[in-house]
Design a protein around this nucleic acid. Structure first.
Length: 579
RNA sequence: CGGGGCGUAGCUCAGCUUGGCUUAGAGCGCUUGGUUCGGGACCAAGAGGUCGGUGGUUCGAAUCCACUCGCCCCGACCA
């Protein structure tokens, strides 16, 4: 294509709104423009890359036996009410009341709709397994869209849903997607790591997350140096800390007056203790029921782990009214003593159970209790009491004895075993050989298309711009005539362009009547992997220059050999992305 | 939703504290002419803004006040 005919609005100056590299470069290279907070238009170059990623994903889904369909983005609220996820998703879900007063949502994902179809169309074990997918826009009313395309309110997601009759079959479907994902990311040319993930409210039994390690990532990966373990922060299991030896003759628990001293730091200052000697008591609301969670003062509770400890029940921090009702005190003074009988569940972190003695809230406004012994002053077991791993991993923790390390990453894909959560609620049942009805075993599998694009830029760039992996570059090669007013230069450029096009190369001809420097800067900024420079001097010598975007040096090549040389270079680049 | 910041030309910003020598500015970009032409050239001449919006204070508001809308950052939240 001719550069002069394409809308490629590159900009020199760094846009004020962009913070991270990929966002800045996507705007500077003319890939995207913002329409409103969290919504973006993809301009020709951006859309070309997106289409390439989509094509790779589609090929790998089809290869893995999944079937592409399209379900509506506009979905009936009723379907979401049937699974209770209208509550769980809460404000993150866009809702629309239509003119007849019916509730609709803009789908943030599509388990309900796919399961609705499975319920209607899949009746017999003979029809299973089935894996259906789509590549469509998804909508989430994020509290805070940011990082450009990485956390936007509208984005393109590939989502697949598998329906199986047996756990073994589900595992096969799951692994087929798992392997397809590896191929997708390999082919897109992005480095990735696979980590164990929490299936959370998706209600599943197993999950892996595909993450691209980079500093701009919002996700934290927890891993061990020996490579034996990798998980996301929500999932990462830590070893229980060793039980501290109890000092002899701890005096009885004693309430002390701590006026207006609610936070951990304030209490530590006031009572001259350390956060690690405090017991934090957090009250959560799990669908209207109060749940108490205890973690050490220097630890942070992990809501995902708490959800898992509660068997998958959604939790959120309780409102002050509930906290005051349960503890009988203002917020900031909750404590474990006598609390178990006033909540539906009390979950105690391992580290709290391992404490010798601690300071806690007194369930009395402006009071704390000291000399609290876990096991003496509050029970560590009981009908509604359990000890579990419910805190976030932190530096110093170990997993199976090996110290854990942390790094940031961008989540680009996740696979889940869902089990029967959705099929039960929506009646997606099949008859087995004996005529008995069973809910389908489901899996769901997502890939963030736009995130792959942004991640690739995060991964591959330099001070001049993007360095696209060949497989997702908007064009594979660019022909840059340096002297647009020289007839020979223009003719040679056109010839090379024609021959490359005939050879099946996606090539851009920079036919703009501009100085060479500008063309070079633009070519580098938009990151085209191979550049053919056609200049007056070298044409006289019968040469052109061929250069890889990723390499500083160009190579002189006789004009007639240039096209085949370029094809060879492109094939070489592609070779690296083969699976 | 809490905290912080910002809305002035297509883009990046100055001017605002202390209202009036500002007839609203600069650089980049854009248009025209010329000189240039292998890493974002130079000269000249132009076009382009109801200073986010509404209301107020004032003889006078981009500048002060109130409200409002939008955007960004930190946090909380998030398959």
């Amino acid at each position: 294509m001719r550069y002069s005919q394409l809308l490629i609005p590159t900009v020199k100056e760094v846009p004020a709104e962009a913070e991270i590299t990929s966002h800045k470069l996507m705007i500077r290279a003319g890939l995207i423009r913002k329409v409103a907070s969290g919504t973006y238009t993809y301009l020709p170059l951006g859309w070309r890359t997106l289409k390439k990623i989509i094509a790779i994903v589609r090929q790998e889904m089809d290869r893995a036996g999944a079937q592409e369909i399209i379900v509506p983005c506009l979905q009936p609220l009723e379907l979401w009410q049937q699974t209770g996820r209208d509550q769980d998703y809460g404000e993150t879900m866009f809702r629309i009341i239509d003119r007849h007063g019916r509730g609709n949502v803009l789908g943030p994902t599509a388990e309900e709709v796919f399961t609705f179809h499975a319920a209607a169309e899949l009746n017999s074990y003979k029809q299973l397994p089935v894996n259906l997918y789509q590549i469509t826009p998804k909508f989430r009313d994020e509290f805070r869209p940011r990082f450009g395309v990485l956390r936007s309110r509208e984005f393109i997601m590939k989502d697949a849903y598998s329906f199986d009759a047996t756990p073994e079959s589900l595992h096969q479907s799951y692994m087929a997607m798992y392997n397809a994902y590896c191929r997708v990311f390999q082919r897109c040319g992005v480095e990735y790591v696979i980590v164990e993930a929490e299936s959370g409210e998706m209600g599943g039994t197993g999950s892996h997350q595909f993450t691209i390690p980079c500093a701009s990532g919002e996700d934290t990966i927890v891993y061990t140096a020996d490579g034996s373990y990798a998980a996301n922060l929500e999932k990462a299991a830590v070893d229980p800390l060793p039980k501290e030896p109890a000092p002899a003759n701890v005096p009885p628990a004693e309430d002390v007056f701590t006026p207006n001293v609610g936070t951990i730091e304030a209490v530590c200052g006031f009572l001259k203790t350390k956060p690690s000697e405090m017991i934090k008591t957090l009250i959560f609301d799990s669908r209207g029921e109060a749940v108490a969670a205890l973690v050490r003062g220097d630890h942070e509770l992990n809501p995902e782990k708490l959800t898992q400890a509660l068997g998958g029940a959604h939790v959120e921090l309780a409102a002050p009214e509930m906290i005051e009702r349960v503890t009988g005190a203002k917020v900031g003074f909750a404590g474990p003593r006598g609390l178990a009988s006033r909540v539906s569940k009390m979950v105690i972190d391992h580290a709290v159970a391992g404490m010798a003695v601690g300071v806690t809230g007194a369930n009395k406004t402006d009071h704390h209790t000291r000399n609290v012994l876990p096991g003496r002053d509050f029970l560590l077991e009981g009908d509604n009491v359990l000890v579990a791993d419910i805190r976030l991993a932190q530096p110093g923790d170990t997993h199976k004895g090996v110290p854990v390390l942390f790094k940031k990453g961008i989540e680009v894909g996740q696979v889940f075993k869902l089990g029967t959560k959705y099929s039960r609620k929506l009646g997606a049942n099949f008859k087995d050989e004996s005529g008995e009805l069973h809910p389908c075993l489901m899996g769901c599998y997502g890939i963030g298309i736009n995130r792959i694009m942004a991640s690739a830029i995060e991964l591959y760039n330099d001070e001049n711009g993007i360095i696209w992996p060949i497989s997702i570059a908007p064009f594979e090669a660019i022909v840059t005539p340096v002297n647009q007013d020289d007839a020979d230069v223009v003719r040679v450029s056109q010839e090379i362009y024609d021959r490359l096009t005939t050879a099946g190369v996606e090539v851009l001809l920079d036919d703009r009547d501009l100085r060479g420097g500008i063309k070079f800067k633009d070519a580098d900024l938009i990151g085209i992997p191979v550049r053919i420079t056609v200049g007056k001097k070298s044409v006289v010598e019968g040469n052109v220059e061929v250069k890889l975007r990723s390499e500083p040096q160009s190579e002189k090549v006789p004009i007639d050999q240039a096209p085949q040389k370029v094809v060879k270079m492109i094939n070489g680049l592609k070779e690296r992305r083969k699976v």
